[in-house]
């Protein structure tokens, strides 16, 4: 471990960390925003359910490196454009979260839906006021998986040169120098734990009604 190297490079490492943070979070946020309507469609059974969930499952099986390389051809972007990584990771987050949102809405007790209908809720108010709040615990659990897995997939993008902590791994390998690799691993784990905790915290705040979740 060469701390003097870490000290000298700290500015660049911090910059890579922020890139890594952005590349991990932004795709999950976009993915969630897209997954909400799609998951809602999927949950409403029938044709949409099998098609959407099937397609989502397939997307997730495409190797990330292949996607990073293929996307410029599809999007017309330059190969080193970070946008490729954002789009690819959004696809992964979306693939995971469509199922999560659909499962979350599915987890709302039928009694509650029936009561809401019988009281005269219309469909959209019911979705926003009743179903989504009750789906938060399940959606948050899926969100945690998506965020943490994104933190690790982002580092693969080092192979196409996008700035983020993965560059520390490639650099360490090329120089046969362990310090940047260890620093990269520690920071990745730290980032994953931080984001995971953040989602957990937000979910707890949004569900004071859960047994054990409230401090009443």
């Amino acid at each position: 471990m060469r701390f003097d190297w870490l000290y000298r490079e700290s500015g660049r490492i911090a910059e890579l960390f922020l890139w890594h943070l952005g590349l991990s979070v932004i795709p999950v946020v976009i993915g969630l925003l897209l997954a909400l309507p799609l998951g809602w469609l999927a949950q409403r059974a029938g044709f949409f359910r099998s098609t959407l969930l099937g397609a989502a499952g397939l997307l997730y099986t495409i190797p990330s490196l292949a996607l990073f390389v293929l996307l410029p051809l599809v999007l017309g972007t330059r190969i080193l454009d970070p946008m490729n990584v954002v789009v690819a990771l959004t696809v992964y987050a979306l693939a995971l979260l469509v199922r999560t949102v659909s499962d979350g809405l599915e987890s709302v007790p039928p009694d509650v839906i029936q009561a809401a209908n019988a009281m005269g809720y219309r469909r959209l108010p019911r979705l926003f006021v009743v179903e989504l709040p009750l789906a938060v615990p399940v959606i948050a659990a899926g969100l945690r998986v998506a965020v943490v897995s994104n933190v690790s997939i982002v580092s693969v993008a080092a192979l196409i040169g996008t700035p983020q902590l993965g560059l520390l791994f490639t650099q360490g390998l090329q120089l046969r120098f362990l310090t940047p690799i260890i620093a990269g691993i520690v920071l990745c784990v730290l980032l994953a734990a931080l984001l995971d905790g953040l989602v957990l915290f937000a979910a707890k705040r949004m569900t004071p009604w859960q047994p054990g979740g409230a401090e009443r």
């Binding site: 509650v112 009281m119 009743v130 569900t207």
Partner: peptide, 14 residues
């Protein structure tokens, strides 16, 4: 119309 069902069907989050 007021509606009452078997297991009350209360909103758990309220």
């Amino acid at each position: 119309i007021g509606y009452v069902i078997q297991n009350a069907g209360l909103f758990p989050h309220r």
